[in-house]
Design a binder for these strands. Structure first.
Length: 381
RNA sequence: CGGGGCGUGGCUCAGCCUGGUAGAGCACCUGGUUCGGGACUAGGGGGUCGGAGGUUCGAAUCCUCUCGCCCCGACCA
């Protein structure tokens, strides 16, 4: 449909480049579905472009991969590895398929987004031609790229812990929840008045905040409930706080800048009411960064480089879900098939330079032949 | 499509083998005491046991059929 329209719209090089983006619900026949990661119906975003030159298309494909990476890292706090797919994992009609790969907490890999340089494959099928600067008629160069609601799954599986969901502040519908604490009726009046003032102040400054005034629940029960829902910051305010003009802020995850909490405990930060807004803003920024940092640390701790033999790699994948294993590969699809058969691990990508090992292996781990690429092996969702 | 499992108050499940007054925890309602990490206590409401048929004096329980859901495999973003 999109290429049919492209073919009608594009006559000369001045009509290029052209871009169409759409959000659409997609239905797929899936024998086995998995919540968020593989559903029979899902919402996705797909973009398509047509360009005058191959170089321009390549640039676009890489640019969009970068956009996805930025969103994953800066908003979802989910670190990703950018790279290229091998021929066997490449999108059928593409020249090259690029991807962002994330590691979940069970060490399995999840493809979080893709971007394809389609070459002229589609333009030839749909007769998408234009008259070039030199007067000759040429086929356009295409790209396509997409992400889906699978990103929701990756966010959940990257950050959540035994207490429940953990949401990055930049995406959390509620960034902070205020829990008032009181015993007597007199305390209730005072505390609620102050808590409400704080609530209104934060809200008026554009902060996404909620106040939990339910009186049929103990404060502790509320803490657990909001933690379960992944709210990044909790603001506790009780009679003592009102008297001291302070509040207690409890971050959803431990922050490196604060003293480590005792096991089973959470960090409690005593904050002056006067600079509450600045503090809350700073803490949400810090928490956002902490999430990304924790996820990178976890990924690197479960990444294995310098594997000596295929036997060693098989050993790694025989235990639990394994790891990201960096190894040399001779470029032979038969090797991929063999490893998949024997370990269930596949080549997730040929990583970009930034992610390659300092001293990349020069031999294929499986065949012993000279390595064409350093690749990442992992079990995938 | 092949293999396995499950349907019992709102939720999670026990009871079924060996038929005999439908249960527990959570949730809900009322009172009292509580409230800075999931409150306690006393009382209370709520269930055609997925559906149909059969066996039996008697079926949540045994038999037959049927509907729905879940898990595993191949498949796949």
């Amino acid at each position: 449909m999109i290429y049919t329209m492209f073919a009608k719209w594009v006559q000369g090089y001045r009509d290029l480049p052209i871009l169409m983006n759409q959000w659409a619900n997609v239905m797929r026949w899936e024998m086995r579905t998995r919540l968020f990661l593989r559903t029979a119906e899902f919402l996705w975003q797909e973009g398509h472009t047509a360009h005058e030159t191959e170089a321009e298309a390549e640039e676009e494909a890489l640019k969009m991969l970068g956009v996805y990476r930025t969103f994953a890292e800066n908003f979802m706090a989910t670190p990703v590895i950018t790279g290229r797919k091998t021929d066997s994992e490449r999108f059928a009609g593409a020249l090259r398929t690029y991807c962002i790969e994330a590691m979940m907490q069970d060490n399995k890999a999840l493809q979080a987004g893709t971007s394809h340089n389609l070459g002229q494959n589609f333009s030839k099928v749909f007769d998408l031609k234009f008259q070039g600067r030199d007067g000759t008629v040429q086929y356009a160069w295409n790209t396509s790229w997409g992400v889906s609601t699978r990103l929701v799954g990756s966010l959940i599986m990257t950050h959540s812990d035994d207490d429940g969901l953990v949401l990055p502040p930049r995406l959390a519908p509620t960034v902070a929840v205020i829990v008032p604490i009181f015993k007597t009726d007199e305390e209730k009046v005072i505390v609620l008045e102050t808590a409400d003032a704080i609530y209104k102040e934060l809200k008026s400054k554009g902060f996404r905040v909620k106040i939990d005034t339910r009186d049929n629940m103990s404060p502790g029960a509320k803490y657990f409930e909001w933690e379960l829902k992944g709210v990044p910051l909790r603001i506790e305010i009780g009679p003592k706080d009102v008297a001291n003009k302070t509040v207690v802020i409890v971050p959803r995850i431990a922050l490196d800048s604060q003293e480590a909490p005792k096991p089973g405990r959470k960090q409690k930060l005593f904050v002056n009411m006067d600079d509450l807004f600045d503090k809350v803003e700073a803490l949400s920024v810090e928490l956002q960064a902490q999430l990304l940092k924790n996820a990178i640390t976890r990924r690197e701790a479960n990444t294995i480089r310098g594997v000596k033999s295929y036997e060693e790699m098989k050993e790694i994948f025989s235990k639990g879900e394994g790891a990201f294993v960096y190894a040399g590969w001779n470029g032979d699809p038969a090797i991929e098939a063999k490893v998949k058969e024997e370990t269930k691990a596949t080549i997730r990508c040929i990583p970009d330079a930034e992610f390659r090992s300092a001293n990349a292996p020069d031999k294929c781990l499986i065949s012993g032949e000279p390595a064409k690429h350093e690749v990442i092996w992992a079990k995938a969702y």
